[in-house]
């Protein structure tokens, strides 16, 4: 394609081709600190859904090695979102070297907290806030569980902040780098945050999972242990490639669900959540 950019996020290499210059320039600026990808694992394409939409009301169709049917095109102004969605989709449907968990993770002293939950549970915000308090940010979308070692690998892509979280994180991280504010996307307002230099520099260092949290935003502060069976079932639902990995996936996920302490955390706000997490960590 006319314009292209390649980079590696954690163990996954991407190549992004674009019919327009602007999206590639945005990506190159935001991913400036990331290594390149000599042979990318996945290809993402940002092109018009039909030839005339390259110029006339330009729109970006999501395409690449793996696609979903009936994905609506986005306006060119939201190309960065399209690129991120395309990259996530390739990993979700195509990556097989690790068991993927839809989760966020932070690390301290070689040990990690994995936070999983549905969209809106606040795991991105929580991981970002912990990242501002001395934890290493490992990722907010996918946690990669290594079948051979049981360790988790970082996938510190751009953090996609939505709506209210945009101002909350900007206030907590005044020196952070952000992408342009994308208003009126299908997910509301979105702004991408560049993970800090430490998260990128250490992204090839795996960590041993030490705590699995199921956070839930908006309730009174409460903590309860989660049994291994329940955690296993919820994690199979939080994994995009559990079934695809077959027996390797089963071995990896049962070990994780059985061996790592598991806690459900309800929290009313970010400050309370951080206090709850630090208390749980101290009690391990």
């Amino acid at each position: 394609m006319k314009h292209q950019f390649a980079m590696r996020v954690g163990p996954v290499g991407f190549r992004i081709g674009s019919a327009w210059r602007a999206p590639v320039e945005q990506l190159a600026a935001l991913y400036a600190g990331y290594p390149g990808a000599d042979v990318p694992d996945f290809t993402v394409r940002l092109g018009p859904p039909s030839p005339w939409r390259r110029w006339l009301r330009p729109a970006v169709a999501l395409a690449g090695d793996f696609t979903l049917p009936d994905t609506a095109p986005l306006p060119l102004a939201h190309a960065l979102l399209a690129a991120e969605m395309g990259m996530n989709l390739q990993v979700a449907l195509g990556h097989r070297r690790h068991l993927l968990l839809h989760a966020a993770a932070v690390e301290r002293g070689g040990r990690a907290i994995v936070m999983t939950g549905e969209s809106g549970a606040g795991k991105s915000t929580l991981a970002t806030l912990l990242g501002a308090r001395g934890w290493r940010f490992m990722g907010d979308e996918f946690v990669l569980l290594d079948p051979a070692t049981g360790m988790i690998h970082a996938f510190p892509r751009l953090v996609s902040l939505k709506n209210r979280a945009i101002d909350a994180v900007a206030a907590a991280l005044p020196d952070a780098r952000f992408g342009p504010l994308l208003t009126g996307t299908p997910k509301g307002d979105i702004r991408h945050l560049v993970p800090d230099a430490r998260a990128v520099a250490a992204m090839d260092d795996p960590a041993m999972p030490a705590l699995l949290l199921f956070p839930r935003f908006g309730a009174d502060a409460a903590v309860r242990p989660v049994a291994a069976g329940e955690a296993f079932v919820r994690l199979t639902q939080a994994s995009t490639n559990y079934v695809a990995l077959g027996e390797r996936g089963f071995d990896t996920l049962t070990r994780f669900a059985r061996d790592v302490p598991k806690v459900a955390v309800d929290y009313p706000d970010g400050e309370a959540a951080i206090a709850q997490v630090e208390a749980l960590w101290a009690a391990l």
Binding site: R15, V39, P40, T43, D65, F66
Partner: peptide, 12 residues
């Protein structure tokens, strides 16, 4: 090496 990405994308 630079040809491989194209082969892999076409093969997928």
């Amino acid at each position: 090496q630079e040809k491989w990405a194209g082969v892999i994308a076409a093969a997928r």
